[in-house]
Structure formats: structure tokens, C-alpha cells
Write a protein that binds this DNA or RNA. Structure first.
Lengths: 339, 339
DNA sequence: ATGAAAGCGCTAACAC
DNA sequence: GTGTTAGCGCTTTCAT
């Protein structure tokens, strides 16, 4: 009953296969009459063109994919990649294109290069999400043959596009906000050491501190690895050791800010009365915890949307710039107290 | 430079194409010697078998996909589908298989049936997530030709598998818990009307009420559509109208519970002092809000894992049961007060 | 405006 | 154990 091919349609419609092909590929040089008849027959037969076959023969196919690195490694609570995906699929729906998503971990990347992945899947190009400095793909990416767009990873290349954010500037801005609230002894809650954004945000932190005429030496750094649990543990350790020697925690992610807040509460202190806390990302949860967290909203979904847009432009050679810097926004809520 | 084919490998290794094919398909009848040589040459040439070509010619291919319905329609805060995906990819990693994820909205489903989608993508079968009663796929699903596993949708069929949860029993259990805490005037916060799980949970609610010798008439129902915002709005309206006439809100999802809690606070009341609240799902956020929400943990990630497992078994004809009922757990936290 | 036929890269009989 | 060859279902010249 199933699996009627282009030949079946051709036969039943009384035309040749190439005519059917023309109809389905929206060629101009085909009579409306025959075209309609073909579609009718196709519908009767439940015919749909087989994508694999099309991929084999077609010159200019458009197959785009989203390759997510470290999907399983990220915390379950981390909605960052999820929102990126949603943004990407938003573009797909708006433009009636299809995106296939694949999860690829670091080990897999050692077996096959990015180009090989595209080759074997007949892709036109792909979005690459969640890349870490430790990822194999990262090294070979600069001279890929297939169009590729990365998020939060800056890399030059003919076929390469990047969707970036001014991490440094944004982190400087939120640090300055804390400083403006008269905090002088800050704790920086650092993210994953091998994440590219961590370094950028650190630079922003330093800059804010130094431009305020303060010394980095007087600040503390704890390492939360972008994890709620790690941030909790480290913050708790620090508070138990040094008590209220510091007044504010400036975290590189909302999740870590949440961990820090939990530690503060468990130590019998209150936010923001005893300690102020800021986050980074603009994750939904940051608005729902108590107190709601002051943070930088990265507008993640929009970034996913912009990434596919850029990829499409690179694929069809219409990309003017290969770097898109997306906007952010300081969201002031209730987790910082003026002292 | 790129795109060397099986023929290039064959030539350079001094063998025929079929021998190369045998090597890559792990046939037994091939000398280790030649096999190794082929792999060596393949590596030199950067050869990877093209999946589209393989799909065309291979009889027993294994291509599985995850089809997500209503991906864009769900609230951004809703991590349910995300966790399901993670669970599915967990299985994929553990078993070294590849899963392609596609987002398909209701409109798209009208154009193409499930079988047609599998056909055009050369799939062996797929996981179907997020199906609503309003979805086109749902109707035609019972007699699909391609193996298919649904989550939270019970449907008989030769090639059909379901991963289910005892929604009714679970909801009854959490309602009973509230009742045991001596609440007598409850508000049921209903989910999406067209969601299959809503009806089940409603049955569980009714049963708990009736078995406690109470009357459904004395309870209130508000409609939150599984949305935080809607639940907030409806709860707020109710509280402003009737004040503390009721003592507990029993919600069909954690997100709605969070909305209700926000409404309660905004009306100047406290949880659980003035109103008790329960959720359902076991979403991560439920643990982080304040107070932490008493809920039913669905163990969503495990369900995603189980779903792929079932699909694989159906595909290779080894499925004993086509219905998997996954476990849940009542998680008691701080949002219910004994009165 | 339509048809015939070659070919995309691979697998699977069938030969040897 | 390995080679030869006919497809898989489509697109794309090239004819007409």
C-alpha cells in the first residue's frame, strides 16, 4: 500500500518521470494543466518525494541541521540550549524550512570532522551549539568547507559565521551596577574554566573593578562551573569561612546565582539584606525564585533565530557580515541592596 | 578536496566497491587484512559513507527520529519536552545510535501523514512527542505502517507503542495528600482542555474527593491551560472574589502551581500559611521556588529513555509489551500546611 | 512543454 | 573471499 514512487505517479498521470519531477520542483516550464493533474494523482497515491533520493541527485539542495555538542553534559536545569533551539525552530517555521537536530558529544567529534558529518548527512550547512574549548570540532572549524554558524564562539572563516554577544561589556555593566550600589567587597562566581564566555566575562569584571579605582586583589573568586550545585558548595564554604566579609556575589550565570542564594539562606542569611547577588543569562527561572534575580538578559531565543538567519545567508552567498552581535539588557530585580 | 566516494576508496585500496561496502557494513566474509587496508585508505581519503545513498539501497536501515509537535507553542518555561529529549538522547548515546529531531506543528501535520513523513525521510520509525487531541497525526496514528512510540497518549496499534504514566492514580494520590492535611475546600487548577492528561488527572481528583466522602460541588475549578500566566490570572481573580473561602490549590502542573503562588503573594497572602499549593510534573523549578512545591515527580528523563527503548524493540520485532507504564513519586516539600 | 536516459553513492544478489 | 552489476528514487542535461 505504501511507498509509491515518482514512476507510479508518472504512469498514472500519463506523463514522464521528469515531468513529475518538474512539477514537484516548481519549474516554470510546465503547463498548469499537467501540473495540477500530477498533484492530484500524487495525492491519490499518497506520494511524497523521497529526500534521500533527492539528496543524491540534486545539485542545490537545502538541508540544514543543528548540531548540539554536550547536550547530555549540561545540567538538566540549564535551559540555555533549549531556548537556542526554540529560536532556531522559530526561524524554521517562519520560513517553512526544516531543521534536523543532532546531539554529538566530544568523543563522537574525534571520529568524524564537521565536514564529514555534513557530507554523510548531505547537509548544506549547520548550526553548531554548545561548543567548548575542549571540543574537537573547534580546532578544525576555521577552514570548514560547509557553511557553519557558531553561537558564543568567535572564529574567522570563509564559510563560518558567529552569533556573539558583548559578554565583556555586559558583565562589566552588571558589575558596575553592583558597585553603584556601594558594594566594595565582591565575590566573583566563575563559570566553566574551559568555556569561552567565562574568560570574556572575567575581563568585564576586571575592567569594572579597575575603572572604579578598586583592586582585584581585594575581591574573591569562587569556581561554580556553571552548576547550581557547585556554586552552592563553594559559596557555602566561603561564607562559613569568612562570614560577612563580602557583601555581594556576582555570578557568571543565573543558575549559579540561584545556587549561591540557596547557600546564603542555608547559612542563615538573607538576600539581599545580608548579601546581594546577581546572575547572568536571563533564564526564566531567575524571575521566579525569591528574591527575583537581577541579571543580564541575553535574549537567547532571538539569538537562535539570528543564527539560522545568518546560516541561510552564508549558504546562499548573501551574507554581508559573518559576525552578528546580539543585544542584551540589564534586568534590575530584587536581589541587590543599596548599602 | 572533499567528497571522495566508495569508488575512490575501492580504487586506491585495489579492491572492488562491494568489498569496501562489506567492510563498512561489518560483514563477516572479508579478510581482516583487506578490511584494515580499506579502513586505512578510507581514513587517508577522509571517506565517510553517504547516508542518503545508503538509505536508497539498503533494505534494513535503522534511522530513528524524534518528532516534536507543538514545540513552539509550549511555554518557554516548560522544560517537559526538553527533558524528554534529553532522556531520548541518553539512550542514543548509550547505544551509539543517532536520533534526528524534527519540530512539526499542527498545520504541517495536515499536509503530510506520519507515514508519509517517515517515508520521505527514510525513517525506520519515530518517537512522537507533544501530541494534542487537536493534532492531525493523532487521528491516523492507530494504523500506521511505520513503528511509532507516543508519550502520554494511549493508542492501540500493531506498530504503535505508548509510554504512559498512571496520571489518574498519581493525581488521586496527591489530592489525597492534601486531604490528609485536613483541607476540605480545594481549588483544582485544570490544564489544557485538549490535553489527554488533563482528563485523566481530573478523574483522579474526583476519585480522591469522592472516596473521602466529599462532594465535587463544594470544590472550585479554574482553568490555567498549563500556563503560568493563565494560572496566575485565574487564581488572582478567584482570590479577589472569594478570599480565603478555599484553603488549597491543587494544580495539574508545576508551572501553574508557580503561577498560583505568585497570585497568592500578590494578593498579600502567604504560602503555605494562608493557602496550600501542590504541583504536578516534578519540573526542576518546582524545587527552587519558595516555598519549594510539593508535587508528583514524573521522572521525565527516564520516560524519554524508555520511549526510545520501546521504539527500538518494536522496530526489530522484539517488543513484548507495547505499553510501558513508568513510575512516579510523590515529592513532599514545603507548600502544603496541615490545618 | 515534455520525454529519454545518464548518473548521484551506495547495497545486495549473483557469479566466480 | 572478492568482483560484477542491477537497481534504490530522484534530478538534470540533452533532445525533440
Amino acid at each position: 500500500m505504501l511507498a509509491s514512487s515518482i514512476r507510479d505517479v508518472a504512469r498514472k498521470a500519463g506523463v514522464s518521470v521528469s515531468t513529475v519531477s518538474r512539477a514537484f520542483n516548481e519549474y516554470s516550464d510546465i503547463k498548469d494543466d499537467t501540473k495540477n493533474r500530477i498533484f492530484e494523482v500524487a495525492k491519490e497515491l499518497g506520494y511524497v518525494p523521497n529526500i534521500s533520493a533527492r539528496n543524491l541527485s540534486k545539485k542545490n539542495k537545502l538541508n540544514i541541521a543543528m548540531i548540539v555538542s554536550g547536550f547530555m553534559q549540561e545540567s538538566d536545569v540549564d535551559e540555555f540550549q533549549f531556548l537556542l533551539m526554540k529560536g532556531a525552530y522559530g526561524y524554521a517555521m517562519d520560513n517553512s524550512i526544516e531543521i534536523a537536530t543532532y546531539a554529538i558529544d566530544s568523543n563522537y567529534q574525534k571520529e568524524k570532522t564537521y565536514d564529514q558529518f555534513c557530507l554523510e548527512h548531505s547537509l548544506s550547512g549547520a548550526l553548531l551549539l554548545g561548543l567548548k574549548t575542549s571540543d574537537e570540532y573547534l580546532k578544525s572549524l576555521k577552514d570548514v568547507q560547509f557553511p557553519c554558524v557558531t553561537v558564543d564562539v568567535e572564529l574567522e572563516g570563509d564559510k563560518l559565521g558567529n552569533v556573539l554577544m558583548e559578554d565583556q561589556k555586559a558583565f562589566q555593566e552588571i558589575t558596575e551596577y553592583v558597585l553603584q550600589n556601594n558594594h566594595r567587597k565582591l565575590v566573583l562566581v566563575y563559570g566553566k574554566k574551559e568555556a569561552l564566555v567565562s574568560r570574556e566575562r572575567y575581563m568585564g569584571f576586571s575592567k569594572a573593578i579597575e575603572e572604579a579605582g578598586l583592586s582585584l586583589e581585594t575581591m574573591e573568586i569562587i569556581y561554580g562551573e556553571f552548576s547550581e550545585a557547585d556554586a552552592y558548595k563553594e559559596a557555602r564554604k566561603l561564607i562559613e569561612e569568612k562570614g560577612k566579609e563580602f557583601t555581594a556575589f556576582v555570578a557568571m550565570s543565573d543558575l549559579m546565582a540561584i545556587g549561591v542564594m540557596r547557600a546564603i539562606k542555608d547559612c542563615g542569611y538573607k538576600v539581599p539584606e545580608d548579601f546581594s547577588v546577581t546572575g547572568f543569562d536571563g533564564v526564566n527561572m531567575a524571575a521566579y525564585v525569591e528574591p527575583a534575580i537581577t541579571t543580564i538578559n541575553q535574549k537567547v531565543k532571538k539569538r537562535g533565530y539570528a543564527a539560522v538567519d545568518l546560516l541561510m545567508n552564508i549558504i546562499n552567498g548573501k551574507a554581508t557580515a559573518h559576525k552578528i552581535v546580539t543585544e542584551y539588557e540589564l534586568v534590575i530585580r530584587d536581589s541587590v541592596k543599596k548599602i
